[in-house]
Amino acid sequence: MASSLFFLICWFACILICYYVIRPISNGFIRFVLTFFSCAFLSYITCQNLPQFHAVTILTVAVCWLMSMRLIAMTLFSRKTSLTFRSFLLKILWIYFPLVPKEKATNQWPIIFSIVLIVVKLLVNHWIYRWSIVCELGVNYARIFMFYLSIMTISYIFDTEMIVVRIFTRDKYTLESFTNFPIFSLSLQEFWGRRYNRIVHTVLKESVFEPIRVEFSSSTVGALATFIISGLLHVHVCLVAFDDSLSSFPTFIFFFLHGIACCLETTVKIKFPEHIRWIITQTFLLITSPLMLRPFIEKGSPFLMLNPPPLISAEWIPKLSVPDFCP
């Protein structure tokens, strides 16, 4: 607890220094170097001695990267705009509490429908967890699909928070959705840009893609840089959360391949029917997913045992029957 408070104070001090000391510096290279090394050092010490196989470790690494990207982008590229410290700070805090006006949000269903969807996701997520926990370790496409479905359905936690915000704000505000039915994606650009992990996407788009696109006048360079940085983030997760250096390169290659594929989608103007586009997109995701998901699936039971979904032990929640075979 004391160490967590210490790191929070350090990050807040870094935010103050970036805004009041580094941002006014006229030389852009110096601003970048000072901000980059400050964030890199803080991320390094924050991610030391974190418990392996814990979801909180993955979250901590991700938050450090997202805060660093925000700070670097705002310190480096926002100098010409009028930006108060309050706005500067709120941009950082948005990572923790991604509040958005409801009319600008995606995937906003009527509250009653959202509640029904939460119940369905909860039941399916618990069912997948109880099935996975009794199965042998191994990497195959069936287990990859189960893990993918588990990630998609764990969003019932975020959906619940969204409903609470909508009720308390009288449906004026909501939270940015975690996912927007990525299984319906008809392209990789749609998957990464509009449907999967909307919070991380927003930070990457505003802090990496847009500044680089403007700087180099190229969406291709911006997209590749975004996927490279996302790949490095996930490599850091492999090293810290799983102590798995062997999976670092495949994880990075996964994001690099997806970056190239997204750029090709932009340049290749061949129009396929929607069902063909869906098949191509989902097939590419399935074929390449072992590159990134292997650490999660190989670690299997230790990771699952240490990260049970919320309410998994609640007796009042109906439990779907677990098959007597393993995928």
Rank of each mutant, 00 (worst) to 15 (best):
E176V: 03
S177I: 02
F178N: 01
T179P: 09
N180V: 07
P182A: 10
F184M: 12
F184D: 14
F184L: 13
L186N: 13
S187K: 07
L188R: 10
Q189V: 08
E190M: 00
R194V: 05
R194F: 15
R194I: 03
R194A: 12
Y196L: 12
I199G: 02
V200N: 03
H201C: 04
T202P: 06
T202C: 05
K205E: 10
K205Y: 07
K205T: 09
K205R: 12
E206F: 06
E206V: 06
S207Q: 05
S207L: 14
V208W: 02
V208P: 04
V208Y: 03
V208E: 00
F209K: 00
F209W: 14
E210F: 01
P211L: 00
I212N: 02
I212M: 11
I212H: 02
I212D: 01
V214C: 09
E215D: 10
E215M: 11
F216N: 04
F216G: 07
S217F: 05
S218L: 01
S218Q: 07
S218T: 02
S219P: 10
T220I: 13
T220Y: 01
G222N: 03
A223D: 13
A223Q: 08
A223Y: 05
L224V: 04
L224D: 00
T226F: 09
F227Y: 00
I228R: 02
I228T: 15
I229N: 03
S230R: 02
S230H: 04
S230G: 07
S230M: 08
L232C: 06
L233K: 06
H234Q: 12
V235C: 15
V235H: 02
H236Q: 02
V237R: 04
C238F: 03
C238M: 09
L239I: 05
L239R: 07
A241W: 03
A241I: 01
F242D: 06
D243M: 03
D243A: 11
D244E: 04
S245H: 08
L246P: 00
S247A: 11
S247V: 00
P250N: 06
T251V: 13
F252H: 07
F252P: 11
I253N: 04
I253R: 15
F254W: 09
F254C: 13
F255S: 02
F255R: 08
F255T: 01
F255N: 08
L257C: 15
L257A: 11
H258N: 15
G259L: 01
I260M: 15
A261H: 14
A261C: 09
A261N: 08
C262F: 15
C262K: 03
